[in-house]
Amino acid sequence: MAHNGNRSTQVNCKGIEILIVGFENVAFAYEDEPETLNDVNFSLREGEFRFLTGPSGAGKTTLLKLIYLAQRPTEGRMTLFGGDVTTAPRDALPALRRRIGVVFQEFRLLDHLTAFENVALPMKVAGVNQNKYREDVRELLNWVGLGHRLEAKPPTLSGGEKQRVALARALVSKPDLILADEPTGNVDPAMGERIMKLFIELNKLGAAVIVATHDHNLVKTLGKPILKLTAGRLCEEPAGAGV
């Protein structure tokens, strides 16, 4: 799943350990508002999995926004795939964003496009020929149980179906980094379990994964390391530490 090669300056050739995300004393504040994130430090390497937890309003979504480059830190230094993105020119951002698959909490599907077109969007944006991704998109939609709804538009889909389309869209470009904001919030437990198993499979194949969730049982069951946010401050907890 993950792309290989020496595209990072922080590659250990023998261990193939690539720094995917690096936060050094990162702070962030929306305009004219107090800091949402304060002195955040953490790193995520290739093939690592983290749960991101914390109470509502703790800054989980903001942290994810910084990682998927919707916002830039107001203080500190942030690296993505080995490169400093704190002050990177905006022309450099699209290529980095294409290496990140995001499952948004509110899905963010385009209502005027079909399920197929929504899932294919990252490929189209990247200029990939439709012949090359048509089968991948169908396969993904089949896998999430929406093979029969390729031509359905989001307004006609249920919350769970939208979530699955959003998931397929995040994975279609085989990203190096997968970010998911409450990915199991709108699906039934069986589908939630399938989605989490998929994340774990992708993670085993090399993709780094961060899943923001309120689901304590999920965190406990999977036993992965935790990034815990409380009032804008981050602390890391090892696997199995609980929530």
């Binding site: 480059l69 951002l93 964003r97 995001v102 969007l121 944006v125």
Partner: peptide, 16 residues
């Protein structure tokens, strides 16, 4: 605005 923002987030360039 929402659509433009999403296009950026999935890697669209300004030219696209």
């Amino acid at each position: 605005h929402e659509i433009v923002s999403l296009l950026h987030l999935v890697g669209a360039t300004d030219d696209f």
